[in-house]
Structures are given as C-alpha cells and as structure tokens.
Nucleic acid binder design. Structure first.
Lengths: 193, 193, 193, 193
DNA sequence: GATGAATGAGTTTTCATTCAT
DNA sequence: AATGAATGAAAACTCATTCAT
C-alpha cells in the first residue's frame, strides 16, 4: 500500500509538471524527454505511468476540465438572486479569463482534440454540454426563471473561447467590464416602449 | 524538366493544394513531402517556390485573411440601413461560419501564430483590428450611428472564433438564427427611459 | 536493444571512430550517417550521445587538443638543460609532425573553428595560448633563462601549422632536421659584442 | 568579336564577385545561387561560364596565386642589396599578411585543395615551389650569395601560412616586427665568438 | 517500479546540376 | 547567350516508443 501512495503521488507530480510545460509550449512542442527531465525521472519511468503521450495528454485535459467545471460552478453557486446581472456576468468572465495559463492549456487541448485524439474529443463534447448546463441554470437562478438562457449560455461560452484564443495571439481586447455590460443589455430585455 | 507555366500560376497551385491539406490535417501534420506529392512536384521544386515551411504557411494565412476580409466587407457593404438588425447579424455569422474548411484553417493558423511564428502573429493582430473596424463601421451604418458598436463588434468576433473552435471539436450548437436574435436584442439598446 | 556498456565507453567509441573518419574526409564530408554506420549504431543512438554534430566535433577537438598538449608538454619536460638546442627543436617538431593523421584533424578543426563554431574558436584561442606558454617555458628551461623566447615560440608554432597545412596539400618540404637547425641558429642569440 | 569581349568581361565579373563571397564565407558555404545572385545573373548563366563549381573555384585559386606571386616578386624585386635584412623580412611578411581577405581565401583554397580538388592540389604544389624559389632568390640577392636560403625560405613560407591560419581563428599574435627580427637573427649567422 | 540505452521512421532543409526554351 | 523552373540525392535533426536489466 505504500507503493500505491507513491504511484499516485508520482502520477500527480507528472501531471502537474507536464501541464505546466504544455501551457508554456503547447502539446506538439512538449516532448516526453522534456517532461521526464522536468519531473526528474527517466523516460522509461514516464512510460511506466503513462503508456502513451496521448494518455498523458488525456489526463491533463481531464484535470483541466474538472478544474474549470468546479470553478465555474462554485462561482455561480455563490451568486444569488439579489445580485445585479452585470456582476454575475463579470464573475463568469473573470473566472475563466483570469488565469492566462488556464486559457493557454484550454486552447492547446482543444486543438489536440480536433486533430488527434478522438477520445479527448468526446470528452470535450461532453464537458461543454456540462458547462453550458451549469451556466444556463446559474443564469436562470440569478436572473429569474422567466428568461430563456440557452442561447445566452452558448454565446457566453463561445465568447470566452474566442477571447482566450485572441488573447493568446495578442489581439487587443475591450475591457472585460464592457463585455459584461453587453451581456447584461442582451439579458435584460429592453422594457417595451 | 522545364514544365514552364508561370511562377505565379505554380505558386497559386501550391498554395491551393497546401491550403487544402492544412485544412484536412492541420499544419504540424502536413509535411512538405505531402504537399510536394499532392502537387505532383519534387520537394526540391517546392523549395524553389517556398524556401521555408514557415514562408508557405505565412502565404496560406495571408490568403486566408484576405479572403475573410473581402467576404465580411462585401457582405456588410451590401446591407443597407433599411435592413432588420437580425438579418445583418445572420449575414455576418453565416459569412464566417458557412464553410467548415475556412474555420479549420483559421484555427490552425491561429495556433501556429501563437506558438511558432511571430511574424504571423503580428499579421493576425493587424488583421483582427481590421476586421473589428469593418464590423464596427458596418453595424453603425446599418443600425444607426447613435450606438457604440465597439464592444459588440468585439463580442461578435470572439463569438465567431469560439463557435468555430467548438464546431471543429464537435460541440453541439444552438442554431445560428438564435444567436443572431441574441445579438439583435443586445444591439438595439433599450430606449432611455 | 539494450546493449549495455557504459555511456562513457560508448562515447569513447564514437569519439574514436568519428575522429578517424574526420581525419580521412574532413568534417564537412563526414556525415552523421557515416559515423553511425561505422560505429554500428543507428543515427538515433548517435543523437543520444551527441545531440548535435557541432557537439561531437567539439569533443573531437577537445580530445585532440588535450592529446597535443600532453604530448608537447611531456616531450619538453623530458628534455633538460644539458641537451643541445637542435635536439630540443627536433623533439618539438617531430612531436607535432610525426603523425599525419594528427595534422589532418588539426587543420580540419581549425577550419571548422574559423567558419562555423564560435565556441570551438574560443577553445582554440585558449589552447594556442597554452601551447605557446608551454613551449616558451620549455625553451627557457633548456636554452637558458637569459633569452626572450616569446617570439620564437610563436614562430615555431606558426611554422608547425604551416608545415602541416603544406604537407596535407602535398607541398614538398625540406627535411625536419634542417628546420631544427634553422631555429637553433636563431635561438642562440649572437653574443653581444 | 563583340561577344568575345562580353564573355571575357562576364567571366571576370563572376570571378571577382565569387572571390569576394568565398573570402567572406568559405567555399563550402558559398552556394552557386549566392554567386549568381550577387553577380545579377541566373544560375543557368553561371553554368554557361563555369560548367562546375570546381572549375570556378579553380579559377578563383588561379587568380589568387597569380596575385600573390606578382606581389611577392615585385616586392622582393624592389629591395636591393643595400637594405637591412630586417626590412626585407618585414616586406615579405607584410606583403602576405597585410590583407586579411587575401589570407582568408588562401586558407579556404588550401583546404579545398586537400580534400576535394586534385587538380587544384597539383596547382598549389607547383605554385608553392615557385614561391619558395622566388623568396630564396630574393633573399640571396639581398642578404648575399654566401648563405643557404632554402630552409629559410621554407620556414618563412610555413610561418606565413601558420600565422594566417592562426589569425583567422583569432589566436593573438606577436607583432610582425618581432617576427622579422627573429628571421634576421637566424639569417645573419652570429659572428663566431 | 525504475532506468537509460537504443532505435527507426520521418521531417525540414540544402544545393549542385540539368535542360527546354 | 541566357534563363529559371525542376530535380534528386543527401544532410542534419526529431522524438515517441521499446526493452533488457
């Protein structure tokens, strides 16, 4: 059982370090030798824990998604009916955009999912559905059940991905607050004149 | 053995074929050997036209951007003040989203820009600015000059990139029309009470 | 398939074999494939030991210099005050000129240093300084401390390089003994009148 | 006959320009494309004048040798019996060492001769014999016919080649004047005590 | 569990040379 | 005389993966 613990701890360590490297260089430019080096283990040992680069990437993705899901969920959870819509939107936007590294890895993993890794792809499809649901329900709870928030959740999610992508390339962006206000203006239908 | 044909025509041919391949496999998985094969020329000849893979990719990107710009511009140009906002948003959304292949190459090129190719990166930043301006001016023309469309243009562009990315991964999406309606609802600012 | 043997031994083997090949063909005409073949390993394995051709060449040079330095040093060491100057000069000349292969590699490495490899260049500059010092001190010890042997050491070193170069091209040369006598005649300064 | 002239002029131009490039980069790193570009002609045209890179190099070498020979000869010619030996040595040393570019090309060509080009090799052997004779005769004329200057000429030539080589690598050198004095001390036998 | 030596298939790049026009 | 498009053979380098110990 001592071994078990070690194994888990090692896996964790490898995951941590390789996530870091992928964030910095992208998946294609992170070699297994890099990872083994950074982790202070041999390539052979790396193969003991992960039989394939793809498997390792899958685990990195898994962890990334879990993180994101938890984060989004807990943020929306903590926001209640009383809050102003704009505050809620800012919350979601900030949660996702705050960490540059989170965005980097997200995009790299999406890329990998679309070109290489069918199982990763399936996983992402599933998780996006999940995210949309969480956001949709969160919006309903805060902004009131009357509205239809399906489209809004989708647009919000797409905007986030787009902004991340653009930020990684270096495209200059409008301040997050302006974007929050934009969603607010769409979310609260104009009082009919 | 001296096939003739103008350089321009051959370049064009190489560009066409390699764009195609990049669309199908991504940049990293399109080798120069693949391109030469598909074009029916030798690797040496490919070198004659493009001394580096990076140069070729840059040209592919250049052409892609020009295409996109023209397309967006001409679509917005043809829409006039009388049109309903929703129609205008659909127009822009459809212009960009219509072709799956266009989306694929766009994302691959962005990836390349962010990890590998600084000059490509600069080019993209410049072109995004351009796109935003075109869209902003188009919206102002159609929806009326009173509004501030900077944020909306940014969100629209980000949404488009996000939707492309998600579609490539296979994430299921709300119908385009719903999204157009969403932008419409935000675009017609509530009359100040 | 896991041949074992220590890294050091393999490195040694690769070094030996590649030195040999470089001697025969020069650096530019010795390919990594040649070396791998001759060593009975794959190109990939070669890469395992030397990640770059430059690194390998540097090591070859390093070893060559060490050899030369040791040789010159020990020869001069063994000559004592009693010996005739001419014998001492012959000693140095012979030490360097004896092996044709040593000369070949020396010249190839110098060429590499001057056109390609800045770190190799630095190394050579350093080692030449070293050689000059060794020779200078050796001459002082044998010929008497009164003289100034800086220039003589420089000329001796230059003559050696020139003779090596010329021999490799096939230029016909005066016998070494004549050259030793020449240095002797310059080395025993005319007694001040 | 107009053509003839043009042909000769073009050859000359190519020779001039390619010498320049070889000086700057060495032979291996000067491509025919480089030369054609610099000469403002096409690669095809280059082949019209020189059927092979080797032929071109041979001509470059030929011209270089002729230059050197003329230079050495005329310098020695102009020095007469009255001059001090040291002045004569400085003359020869300076003639060869003065131009860095001359030294560069000399070494590159020697290298080429020894590894690649047997006809170039023969040419160099012949020319070295020539240089030695010129120098030998010059020394005899100036320093007096009594001495045997065969060895001295050889050492002088070797020293020059060695100094050039070392200078190209960046090895620091004693001032030329010291070297001239060294040869003087050997050339004028010490008055027997 | 761990290692590191070994590999092979592939990737970009280089460049002297050819030849139809 | 001149061109430039085309080529092929080879070069260095990359890296995920295997496996005996």
């Amino acid at each position: 059982m001592g071994q078990r613990k070690t194994t888990a701890a090692n896996r964790e360590r490898i995951l941590q370090i390789s996530s870091q490297l992928v964030r910095e260089r992208g998946i294609e430019h992170t070699t297994l030798a890099d990872i083994a080096d950074a982790a202070g283990i041999s390539k052979g040992t790396l193969y003991y824990y992960y039989p394939t680069k793809g498997d390792l990437v899958f685990d990195i993705a898994e962890r990334h998604m879990t993180n994101m899901t938890e984060r989004i969920f807990s943020r929306l959870e903590s926001s209640r009916a009383g809050q102003s819509p704009r505050t809620v939107f800012r919350l979601v936007l900030d949660t996702v955009m705050r960490s540059r590294s989170r965005g980097e890895i997200h995009v790299y993993l999406l890329q990998e999912a679309m070109t290489q890794n069918p199982s990763l792809r399936k996983r992402f499809i599933q998780e996006y559905r999940n995210w949309r649901r969480i956001i949709e329900e969160g919006l309903a709870r805060v902004l009131g059940n009357g509205g239809e928030y399906r489209v809004m959740a989708q647009v919000l999610l797409a905007t986030l991905d787009g902004l991340i992508l653009q930020r990684l390339v270096g495209v200059d962006s409008v301040p997050m607050d302006g974007i929050a206000r934009f969603f607010e203006s769409a979310g609260t239908p104009s009082p009919v004149s």
